[in-house]
Design a protein around this nucleic acid. Structure first.
Lengths: 210, 210
DNA sequence: GTCTATACTTCGATAGAC
DNA sequence: GTCTATCGAAGTATAGAC
């Protein structure tokens, strides 16, 4: 999905992902999406009817995929602590495969879901649901201390989404020598996020693993 | 700043804050800002020259204020751990006083700073700088374990910004009965964020306070 | 400093031929 | 399914009177 695919609708969705991520719903231009997908603008409307429908289709698809990956981790084997590690790494991997994802997520949170219908919101809600399920299972099993599952969702995913969405602006800030932000790699970020989650969720002060 | 002030430029900035937060730079309408500020649109251009300049003025002001508050905490009295607690609570307070702030921050990260000049980016960079300074002092004093100060910035502030910016969409998701997200109050969120930061930064497994 | 009226541009969307 | 040409709405910005 990073590069335009063969078939028209897929190529359009791929181009739309880049455009909506970079400029938001209001800032996105249908002409640019069509040009980037190498289709005619009338073709785009033939397939998606309106800019809004294109946007919803894209969001429903991407949030569904993200939630599915997290649900698979939750339903898989291993301890709750291992699942938390995998959820953090899995989200980072997902973002690396779909680099437009974090910007769209940030924008949609800021937007308050203004352009979304019920089905799209349901797909979006699947992400916190999947994380909450993993954390709740760990609390119920006595592996984790009592934390609010929604707080766990925010503390696990917000930093990685924020960090990866912010790559362009960090680069710009570093380039202008306003602050050096280059010394923290994505891999190291994931490792520290896992360590931090482990400590935050540990049942007693002595955290598990290292 | 939540409600229009007496003087024109301040009233315009207050109205612009709400409009830009709710709709982003591209989605914001100059007409709406002028109407909400109860000034004529020509008056707005008389004071700010363009939509972009208005946006930059607003952002420089708000990021400067946020960074100043965090710097004051860092320069104040108390242990590093206390300063981390205060930084988290201070940011939550700041957001409650300037409710438009988190949405604008999320949008600008997603946007990659596209509409910002050097001065505005410098003001924006002041926020991670202030947090990094607090964390680095704690590491140097041996109060904290060795964490990357930039990671500490993201793990401390991203959750609270994300959570508070997401209030409207959480309300919508709860209203549509897609997931119950109402059971986590801002006060409780701050408390858990402080506890989580304490555990994450603790030098040994046994965390301080509790 | 303040207002009305409007110029100029861009953009989402469609008509209609093939 | 695919294209060209274009409409009509909406938006930023300014001219020019007071």
């Amino acid at each position: 999905m990073a590069r335009p695919a063969r078939v028209s609708p897929d190529a359009i969705l791929a181009a739309a992902a880049l455009e909506f991520a970079a400029r938001g719903f209001a800032g996105a231009r249908v002409d640019r999406i069509a040009r980037r997908a190498r289709v005619n603008k009338a073709m785009l409307y033939y397939h998606f009817n309106s800019k809004e429908r294109l946007y919803r289709t894209l969001l429903r698809q991407i949030f569904t995929r993200a939630a599915e990956r997290l649900r698979a981790i939750g339903a898989g084997s291993g301890t709750s602590a291992e699942k938390v590690d995998r959820a953090i790494a899995g989200m980072a991997d997902f973002i690396q495969e779909h680099s437009f994802f974090p910007a769209i997520m940030l924008r949609e949170v800021a937007e308050g879901g203004a352009h979304l219908d019920r089905g799209t919101l349901k797909a979006l809600a699947g992400v916190p649901r999947a994380i909450a399920a993993i954390v709740q299972a760990g609390v119920a099993a006595g592996d984790f201390r009592r934390v609010h599952p929604l707080f766990a969702y925010f503390s696990m995913l917000a930093p990685i989404v924020f960090y990866l969405a912010g790559t362009p602006i960090r680069k710009e800030i570093s380039h202008l020598r306003l602050m050096d932000m280059r010394s923290l790699s994505p891999g190291e970020f994931v490792r520290q996020a896992q360590e931090s989650a482990r400590r935050s969720l540990a049942r007693d002060a002595r955290h598990t693993g290292g």
